[in-house]
Write a protein that binds this DNA or RNA. Structure first.
Lengths: 210, 210, 210, 210
DNA sequence: CATGAATGAGTTTTCATTCAT
DNA sequence: TATGAATGAAAACTCATTCAT
């Protein structure tokens, strides 16, 4: 009997712990980087918060910037998971657009760390591999949202070839609102009705026929 | 000719050169910090670009962060100079709101460095003196814009006590659009008509009565 | 042979090397700081002399001043080790006082670096943590010596409440003799008989009844 | 009538102001350097305290170290002025020695800045011109005191060729007492009787015939 | 001469990354 | 694979000194 079977699936148990450590580092890292700034947050703080040794960080992520890119990926996937369902049900263009806008604003209101991270991640060195990965990931996300909005946008008279820009505007407004607002104490406490209204602006504005 | 006039206003000549050096450092610094990132841009690069010695930087600005705060002040003053005239002429609420939105978008389209700087400056340590100055400056700016928009916003049904949030939304959308868009190549080439339309969204959206 | 013994106590081997590096830094640092001055001696010189990287210094000592404080501690402990035995054997007051004085003088004659270090360490910023540590350490040392001398001093008519001052006078004379004397070439070559005589002065002076 | 006579002795008036500025710089510099440390005290602090421009400092003293050397000269001259009279009147050896010791201690008790300065000045780079000047000045001072003490010392059995060492011991004890004592709060408040006793130690110790 | 703006060599300290164990 | 000790490149900031005015 091979020793590998001493424990039930010992390898996957080890893999499980490994994944768990990565998850903790990502979670703590997101929180710390948002609170203290991406650059000011040191690798050792993250590993300490995650309860692992400093060296372990680099067995999971090639560099600190790669870690940030991984966080961006995680945040955008999370955001997409909230946005995508809106495209499934049948909805008129205006409702779809308003829904997407509102979901964005609510998302970043509840997760200001996500806003802080995305904003700062855009400042990574554009030429390094991590910066390129972030850029690509962001482009993919905007493409996805643009594709989702395409019918609605077209219906409301927004030029099809500028779908990305519409998605970009939504991201910029929602993410920037909480990034610029946070040091001022704005945003976090804004009533839902207000954010709904902001989220509907694009839909209503485009819907208007002059 | 009296010897006193050998050097025409000798003291102010020195002061003039001094101011000129400060102006060059601010201009070059804005450009460099936007291109390479606020943190990645080193003081020595700025002074080299401005043609002065490294030490000179610190006779004008107490710290690098104080320099960033000075740049924020300069950018917001510049932006205010473009926005304020809109509040002077008589205009209905919708036009005023649309005008302010469009001016913001055009401003950051032409000066992506300004967008990059403001965005990154919001990441300065909130507790340090420079961070506090930036925060205060930003709050003042939003107050100014909010005051300008107050009549228009009220006319369109935006609650008066949330004027700051309306101003914040405009800043976030316009500044964020070019910050997030730049690494993707979006924004810089966007046709003016598109930006006008984006700028009008708030006005039109609020103007619609459901 | 079990694999666990491949590396005999692997962790303590690392710790041993670490301690050894600290010992080398302290030894070389004492020598260099005495020769070139505490401030003029740079951290990099010390690490180079100790054969470690510059960064290693700061994994052992929080700051350069903390390093100086550690040296002071080492020097005073070393000095105390020579002085303390004198208090053990039975001795009349005069002999004890004379012995302590002579030991001090001999100590600093053989270790002018110690004199240089103590003297300069007293110039550290009194408000910083290192300065406070040095001050406390010095006070403790004087208290220890004062306690040792108490019976002798009392016997010779030195007021008990000024024991610290007597200890201070001994330290000042011995340490200062070699600090002020060194640039003049005085002290280092002074014959032992002379130093003995200097060391006995206090004992004999106090012993005299007018 | 030559314009030079417009003001009575205009040249010496200017010279007088110049000397006055130097005197102020020396006085303020001594105080500041003692309080904050020779190295930590900056040229600009001194000139500001003296009410002159920073550049003026260097028209009076070649370097900051030369300034320290000038202060040393001033302090030692001042000290000598107090010590020398003791050698004039007729006095037995023991009284002379005791007087010199007491004067030293009283001098540094009243002028702890002088103790701080002399002690720190001995740490100047021994090879630089200022360091050499300090060394020479100190040697001269000790020679002077030694010459003064020669008859007394001889009378009390101190070997003539070691007069310098006797003078050195007196300087070390008195200066060091207040240098090491200051951070501990010792010395400044010590009663005069105690200092007298310390000052007499050498005289009484040497006077004793075993 | 007096001044103070400009200068840049010099120094401490930080922190991502490596690698021996 | 996990660890944390070692590493050194990098960067802000200081301050004595110079010199044009």
């Amino acid at each position: 009997m091979p020793p590998a079977e001493q424990h039930p699936t010992p390898q996957s148990a080890r893999q499980g712990r490994r994944r768990e450590a990565a998850r903790r580092m990502l979670a703590e890292g997101l929180s710390l980087m948002a609170r203290r700034g991406v650059q000011a947050c040191h690798v050792e703080e993250i590993t300490a918060a995650a309860g692992v040794g400093k060296g372990t960080f680099f067995t999971h992520f090639a560099t600190k910037e790669a870690f940030v890119a991984a966080l961006v990926d995680q945040v955008l996937s999370d955001l997409a998971r909230r946005v995508r369902p809106l495209g499934l049900g049948p909805a008129d263009g205006e409702s779809l657009l308003a829904g997407v806008g509102t979901v964005h604003l609510r998302y970043f209101q509840l997760r200001p760390e996500a806003a802080a991270l995305l904003t700062q991640a855009c400042g990574l060195d554009q030429d390094g591999p991590a910066g390129q990965q972030v850029r690509q990931r962001l482009a993919d996300h905007l493409d996805m949202v643009a594709a989702m909005l395409a019918p609605a946008a077209g219906q409301l008279g927004w030029p099809a070839e500028h779908g990305r820009e519409l998605a970009l505007a939504m991201l910029a407004l929602s993410c920037g609102f909480f990034w610029f607002g946070r040091p001022l104490g704005l945003g976090r406490e804004s009533p839902a009705a207000l954010l709904d209204r902001l989220g509907r602006l694009a839909a209503q504005g485009l819907a208007r026929r002059d």
